[in-house]
Design a protein around this nucleic acid. Structure first.
Lengths: 109, 109
DNA sequence: AAATACAATCGTAATATTGCGATATATATG
DNA sequence: CATATATATCGCAATATTACGATTGTATTT
């Protein structure tokens, strides 16, 4: 095996899991923090900031882009990566609802 | 390779990534939802609810336990799994801070 | 003590992820 | 057009994840 059985879960469960998975790597957390912190946000800068090879950064950016967490627009030679506000909002909502469903009082053990 | 370079990231980035990773699977999302929804929360029930083998569920539970997202207490023959309130609180805080750092107005592209 | 019930672990196969060097591609600039 | 700069993609090796049957462990019943 080694293949997630997506068909037995709901669309929402799969989508939320996918978004979390895209963020579930320290390099991608760091990349997102850099993008948020910087006004301009370029791949090259990230390579200098983080201690990873250019190919590796590019791959992480691709994954974030596939999950639609970020979006990139070509700006001359460079590419400007930014947060995708739609997805960000969706994630905040979905994850918030998920986390909020638990009330500490409910604990039985 | 194939080994995440945890040493080049901060403790917080690694911890948050680890917690998200533990949740970044539809089966584990579903398991957590079940645990939250149910008053009692037992592995056997999960096997019936989700369409996965007992060994698979047990493995997912182990991962959630390793990440300290859930905790299990032995209750006779069964094991009662519950949310770990400490970790849940930590995750809400850390992820909240991370997500909140982004303001939609900051977008440049 | 034997049988039963529930959950954990082992072993294994299939697939995915991580990281990087090398190479390709695309856009400026001289 | 040649060259420099920035990013993407390819190909590969190492490791991790997902899933499950089979087995083992552990507590409760009979």
């Amino acid at each position: 095996m080694g293949l997630t059985k997506t068909e037995i879960f709901t669309e929402e469960q799969n989508r939320l899991a996918g978004l979390l998975k895209a963020m579930a790597h320290p390099a991608r957390i760091a990349i997102l923090q850099q993008i948020i912190a910087a006004k301009s946000c370029i791949c090259g800068d990230l390579v200098e900031e983080l201690g990873l090879a250019q190919a590796t950064i590019s791959q992480h950016l691709k994954e974030l882009k596939n999950a639609e967490i970020i979006q990139g627009t070509i700006e001359g030679v460079r590419v400007c990566y930014c947060i995708n506000p739609e997805t960000w909002k969706l994630l905040e909502k979905q994850f918030g609802a998920f986390m909020g469903a638990y009330k500490a009082e409910t604990n039985c053990c």
